[in-house]
């Protein structure tokens, strides 16, 4: 799982970095004002983007959000509480959030809460991150399994996802279990 930071200054990036990498999320940071956001997002495929609320690149992200389903979208209408916390993230930490549809809202919520709370107190964090860890681990396995299938069988990402889902259905197991099994044994069975 990848989180891309755009125009987040070093001070804030460091705080976020400490939380996120501990949870096993890959963090990429860009502060170059000449960076080509389209190319960057196209190459890196981040699942979540955190961007400075006042970054000029936000208008580019808005465009991207409207172009493609696979590209990060503005997360605004998550429902009452979540929208509230996204507003707090913007006003208290000066950070706006974009995510692709596939990111579970619970995970997003945790990430937002963590980011906010970090700017208030560092102490509350551990527990929250621990709660977040199984979810990120699951996604990690899923992504690795997809990559394994794509590399081994020369399939596209959609085909790999399809294959995992079909096997999960057949075996009546959660798809993450099937993914883990595949990574452990190299086989679906």
């Amino acid at each position: 799982m990848k989180v891309l930071l755009i125009d987040i200054d070093e001070h804030r990036a460091k705080k976020i970095d400490a939380i996120i990498t501990w949870a096993g999320i890959e963090l990429l940071s860009v502060t170059d004002s000449d960076a080509d956001i389209y190319q960057l997002v196209g190459e890196l495929h981040p699942e979540i983007i955190l961007v400075d609320t006042n970054s000029p690149n936000r208008d580019t992200l808005e465009h991207l959000a409207q172009l493609q389903k696979g590209a990060p979208r503005t997360v605004i209408n998550l429902g009452g509480n979540r929208s509230e916390s996204i507003n707090r993230l913007a006003s208290e930490a000066g950070i706006s959030l974009y995510a692709i549809d596939a990111v579970p809202t619970a995970l997003l919520q945790s990430l937002i809460d963590i980011a906010i709370s970090y700017f208030h107190s560092v102490n509350q964090l551990r527990a929250e991150v621990e709660a977040l860890k199984p979810t990120t681990d699951a996604r990690q396995s899923l992504n690795k399994a997809k990559k394994f299938i794509m590399d081994t069988y020369g399939l596209t990402e959609d085909q790999a996802t399809d294959l995992l889902n079909k096997n999960a259905d057949r075996q009546r197991k959660p798809v993450t279990d099937v993914a883990r099994q595949l990574l452990d044994t190299g086989s679906f069975i």
Partner: peptide, 14 residues
């Protein structure tokens, strides 16, 4: 002055 059109709109909304 606002840094981008998006934040300008968001601030009028909120």
């Amino acid at each position: 002055a606002q840094a981008n059109w998006k934040v300008l709109l968001d601030r009028v909304i909120d």
